[in-house]
Amino acid sequence: MRKNKLGVVSKIYLALIFLFLYIPIGVMIFMSFNSGRNVTVWKGFSLKWYDALFKSKELMSALGNTLLIAVLASLLATVLGTAAAIGIQNFKNKPRAVIQNISNLPIISPDIVMGVSLMLLFSFLGVLFHFQMGFVTVLLSHICFCVPFVVLNVTPRLRRMDRNIYDAALDLGCNQWQAFYKVVLHELSPGIFSGMLISFTYSMDDVVITHFTRGVKFHNLSTRIFEMLRKEVRPTVNALSALLFVTILLILVLINVYERRAEKRAAKR
């Protein structure tokens, strides 16, 4: 396609879209420095809501839970999903299609339906085995919606992989585990990595499924924000959003810069 310079109209259009995307976030961050209690009326500059945020045990432990769940869910989902993708590949066409379709169900079904259905399952099992919903049920639910993304990311890599290199590794004296570890996992690693990254971000972002499977006592950041928004809103929420936004921005910019450097290095070779 021809890469000619964009016209003025195009540039204005993109600028308007960017404004639409960033004005709400900008206003929200601006209000986090408000010294008043109200999130709309500006009363002067203050950092007290940041102070309040770091002193809030509720929010800090919720943040800890969010990170813990995201790390565990993405790791476990990656193991389960990678193994599954390799196994599924060995089925014949028809059963493979059936398994893949069932695997995609959590992606296509609405979050709320999945949340509600898992809640039904866990409350039923809870009565049967005398347990209550909490950390474990939230973790299990997060794994549920993460695994399909891992399978979807690993499968294309697996299809492109030359099966002979595994046999070659065996012929050259690797045992099955070494061949698997050194050859197969190495070949699949970009797919595994992007599956894990997607899992992590989905787990961090989830509200609905956590809301239905958390039981009574367990809270993560999403469910705390959920409660705060329903009750009285204080600028602590703004301070929290501002910090999250800056963290995400930094991580994404760093990843982007790193990728570009890698591309440049690859181009030089």
């Binding site: 709400p24 976030i25 206003v27 929200m28 961090m204 972002d205 509200v207 950041l221 999403s222 924000i225 959920f226 928004l229 809103v233 929420v237 929290l240 959003s241 999250l244 936004f245 995400i248």
Partner: peptide
Amino acid sequence: MNFLLRIYA
């Protein structure tokens, strides 16, 4: 950003 925070914004 968290889904809820975007609505809140």
